[in-house]
Design a protein around this nucleic acid. Structure first.
Ligand SMILES: [Mn+2]
Ligand SMILES: [Mn+2]
Ligand SMILES: [Zn+2]
Ligand SMILES: [Zn+2]
Lengths: 149, 149
DNA sequence: GACTATGATGCAACTCAATTGCATTTGTGG
DNA sequence: CCACAAATGCAATTGAGTTGCATCATAGTC
């Protein structure tokens, strides 16, 4: 409920709401990073998250951002895409389940989430293998890069 | 054709044959690495290749192995799988086209090539995106790891 | 078989994302 | 407001992969 003291008042944003469900602490770093991921049109690298965080006035250490990103993934609030360039990228888990493919631009490195759903059925695996999840990544050129020399 | 001098005789193995087609030089490092990849039952990391190479008596530098692996990929003689652990793994391009999925064990890190073919059709992409290729990686536990505590 | 040009290798230093250990700070339930 | 677990900051470290440049070896030519 709203506090009486204006200085302690903080609106319950959707972001804080999402974080609250985890039962863990709501910290500025977690709030800011999740907000960034939710608003991003594509998956962001740690570096991109760091820059966006600075723009929002967050002065968190690089390591904290790494830890926040990992934590968000662990909470199911974000997912992680492994690029072809050894850089991990993240975006918020949309309300819709994470069952979409990703597009990795081989020129600029950007990663886009595609509408393209993954094959719905679990793939046939040889005897003894246990399924956990799958990732479909398409390589190619993004609209910007494909129109350049 | 076979040389007359036994000391200079070298059999034309399938490996040398494959390398010869590239038009580039046939070197011990290239021969050994390609042989290793061809015989491997799964995709190997640079480190695994290095160890296998040592066992075969090849004393090549780490950097050379990196360069050989890249070169093999460039020649279409091998393909590269990007793991979830920021480690690249390689295996020889089978005679059959490389259109199979890979399985990445989340416990031991091993990568297996699956029979499972990729979706044959190019996926539908939003306007402006250009397709180059795709990679389907399944996460889970390998037979060995799935039977352990 | 020796000669040579060019492509391959060795070596050391470097890059860069990500991780770890530990001291300090901070969010939150009571 | 307090206590304490949880989160953060900082510095050092890891580990895969890359780069520049000097040296060496393959394969074509004589
Ligand atoms: Mn996504
Ligand atoms: Mn394969
Ligand atoms: Zn691009
Ligand atoms: Zn395993």
């Amino acid at each position: 409920m709203a506090a009486r003291h204006p200085t302690s008042y903080r609106p319950v944003t959707p972001v804080r709401d999402l974080l609250a469900r985890s039962g863990a602490r709501i910290t500025p770093a977690r709030e800011t990073v999740l907000a960034i991921l939710l608003e991003a049109p594509r998956a962001l690298s740690h570096l991109e998250v760091e820059q966006a965080a600075r723009q929002r006035g967050l002065t968190a250490d690089r390591v904290t951002l790494y830890r926040v990103l990992d934590w968000l993934v662990g909470q199911g609030l974000a997912h992680r895409i492994e690029g072809q360039d050894r850089v991990r990228r993240f975006n918020a888990e949309a309300a819709v389940e994470h069952a979409h493919a990703h597009f990795h631009c081989t020129r600029c490195g950007q990663v886009f989430c595609l509408e393209q759903p993954l094959p719905r059925h679990k793939p046939q695996l040889p005897e003894g293998f246990r399924f956990e999840g799958m990732e479909l990544t398409i390589r190619g050129l993004c609209p910007t890069c494909s129109t350049q020399t």
